[in-house]
């Protein structure tokens, strides 16, 4: 049976909420057949969450030089070759996914999304372009799930 897991990565700080806002919108849409979680810097603890998952959808904030609110989807071939050492507080999402790949622990399908943000600052609310992008991405994800999930 296909098992879908959606993980929003972020923090309560301003635009860094991008991943959380996306999964909040999906949660509000009532996607009952999928597991939805909000995570804050999971580090290597991300790997056990992948066990038994057939499709992983992961959304995080990113700063890639684009406009705030730009949405990017990363294929595995886009993951850069790993060339840095890990630190215990610096095991990022990509580090954890690369480690999972070496351990044959990656789900068969991974949709990795980044939402371009401005400055991550201590603010309760995200900026308008990021809020809008989170809503748009949630809509796209929901639409893609409707096609693949038997319950939709």
């Amino acid at each position: 049976m296909s098992r879908v897991r959606i993980l929003g990565i972020g923090s309560p700080a301003g635009d860094d909420q991008a991943g959380w806002l996306t999964v909040d919108a999906l949660h509000a849409a009532g996607l009952e057949a999928v597991e939805i979680d909000k995570l804050d810097r999971p580090g290597a603890s991300l790997i056990p969450l992948l066990a038994g998952v057939s499709r992983l959808i992961l959304i995080d904030a990113m700063r890639g030089g684009g406009q705030a609110g730009d949405i990017r989807r990363f294929d595995q071939q886009d993951w850069p070759a790993y060339d840095q050492g890990l630190s215990s507080h610096g095991i990022g999402v990509l580090d954890a996914l690369l480690l999972a790949r070496e351990l044959d622990a990656l789900p068969p399908r991974i949709d990795l999304y980044g939402i371009e943000i401005g400055t991550a600052c201590l603010s309760e609310t995200a900026t308008a372009p990021v809020r809008q992008a989170a809503g748009q991405l949630a809509g796209e994800i929901a639409a893609s799930l409707a096609l693949t999930l038997p319950s939709h």
Binding site: S45, P48, Y82, L99, E102, L103
Partner: peptide
Amino acid sequence: NSAIELAKIAPQEVRRGLRIQ
């Protein structure tokens, strides 16, 4: 240089370590 490289040569041990963690 990293746990990712270690996982190439000692995958069982790294998996076991992550389970214990």
